[in-house]
Write a protein that binds this DNA or RNA. Structure first.
Lengths: 217, 217
DNA sequence: CTCAATTATTGCGCTTGCTGCAAAGTTTCG
DNA sequence: CGAAACTTTGCAGCAAGCGCAATAATTGAG
């Protein structure tokens, strides 16, 4: 599942440093607030120079949210979409989005802390969104090929061709966004098992999308 | 329609300064690129101190896009929604969103320049989105009351109650976003008459939303 | 093991965005 | 006119982020 080539001491250290920065960033934000958790402070607490910080992350927010610069490969996207195929379009796409948002490699504790951070500083949500749109092209490309493989849109008449991958993407993004927002605002119910949480989030996002598409005519 | 109390020389000057800043900001970005159009340069070209710049705008981007700090009043939102009522929900909401994005008071020339700017610097689009989400609470509140007045969702059974205003908002936001993106990327067709453009944009956004809701079951 | 190539870390200095504060200038209105 | 209200501005400061060049660590080949 993971392409973690178990190579070299070097990469190992690098991974550790990144992990430490992510962890410390979240900690400091929780303790001192977003504004007080400066890059200097974070780097300091991670025993690393501020300059090094920017070798790992493009911005403070990226560190806090655990966003990795090395963006997705097309293969990864295609693979994930293929894996969750069989269900509906919406299911596949929502799953993809949640996967992008959530660096699944993080520890569950870090994950929970991040939830708290986002709850305390909702501005960060827009960073999440930005991240999504940053990868939008890649993701919509993946969705596009998914659409092309979908038998449902094969022999359609011209005007009822495939729905635009862009729009689908936007719609699902909306669903995910709202699901996350709901889940962030409606208290800490079930914050223990974050795997169940993810699942729940996914279901809710799909439900929201469905709800709207049904109601609007 | 507008609450422009034609008061005082003071307010007049203020309006002029703001307009000048907006105009100059767009000009400089077009001429020198986004990075080179610094706050200093903009303020300079507008014969105003950099410090004053921030009395008018919260950020460089706000000036470029003509975003006004004094956010919307609930009344304005309600009024606009009421005005475009009668059509469908989607129509009303899309119209509202476009109205929020586009400060209608700007001159058409400035408007066109802004289009070019956005085309040349798509990063700015995310600012637009941010602005939308910034006002999300207010707008969804307005949508919520619109939903409550809608006879279509009145006597529904519990599980088929109103679709969440949040999700509707997200969906339409997605539609608008994609419409704008399309229109930005697909060349300069019809950039002459920007009123027609807005109309076209609105129609396209609605169409996109419809398209998706129909296709997905 | 040793040495050279590669890559990571760091310090330094700089630009830019943005804010608070208090002084000086304008506009308004009685 | 003259006081109150508001704007502009300079100054000083913080934090983000980048380019560069020196230093240090890791690696792989011999």
């Amino acid at each position: 599942m993971e392409t973690t080539a178990p190579l070299g001491l070097r990469d190992k250290k690098r991974a550790e440093t990144r992990a430490k920065l992510e962890r410390v960033a979240v900690e400091l934000v929780l303790r001192d607030g977003l504004a007080h958790a400066t890059v200097d402070a974070i780097s300091d607490a991670a025993d690393v120079s501020p300059r090094t910080f920017f070798n790992y992350f493009d911005s403070k927010e990226d560190a806090i949210l655990g966003v990795r610069n090395p963006e997705l490969t097309d293969d990864e996207v295609a693979q994930h979409l293929a894996a969750s195929d069989g269900g509906g379009l919406v299911e596949s796409i929502v799953s993809l989005l949640l996967w992008v948002i959530e660096p699944s490699t993080t520890s569950s504790e870090l994950h929970m802390s991040r939830m708290k951070v986002v709850k305390a500083h909702p501005e960060l949500l827009s960073r999440h969104i930005t991240q999504m749109t940053r990868m939008a092209d890649q993701l919509t490309a993946g969705i596009q090929t998914l659409l092309e493989k979908d038998p449902r849109f094969e022999g359609d008449s011209p005007e009822t061709l495939q729905p635009s991958a862009d729009v689908l993407f936007a719609l699902c993004t909306g669903g995910v966004r709202v699901a996350v927002k709901e889940w962030v605002t409606n208290g800490s119910a079930a914050t223990q098992d974050q795997l169940a949480n993810l699942d729940q989030l996914e279901r809710r996002a799909i439900e929201l999308v469905r709800e709207v598409t049904k109601k609007i005519q």
